[in-house]
Amino acid sequence: MEALTRIARAGIRVAELTAAEEKANSAAQMAGLAYGLAAIGPGVGIGIIFGKAIESMARQPESAGMVRTTMFLGVAFTEALALIGFVAFILLKFA
């Protein structure tokens, strides 16, 4: 009997959720779009940073250590944009 009540309640809840779910659904789609857009720029940027770093390391292997540190710093700054996009994705999707 208790199980039946629970199941019935669950069904009602599913019905009630619909409007909210619809909103959440569109938010989820927007979230995916937001993250996809946020990943474009930093993707290109990180590619450029690594490419240039490899170039300069190949040209002057003696300065490789300094280049590597600076490269990681640059990657960290660029990557932050993509990560903010990722956080926006989670905020849109779950908040």
């Binding site: 959720l17 956080v87 989670i90 905020l91 779950f94």
Partner: peptide, 14 residues
């Protein structure tokens, strides 16, 4: 799958 907590009263995962 859906939980009520996910959409309404759940604390933000962030």
């Amino acid at each position: 799958t859906a939980t009520e907590s996910e959409t309404a009263s759940a604390p933000n995962p962030i």
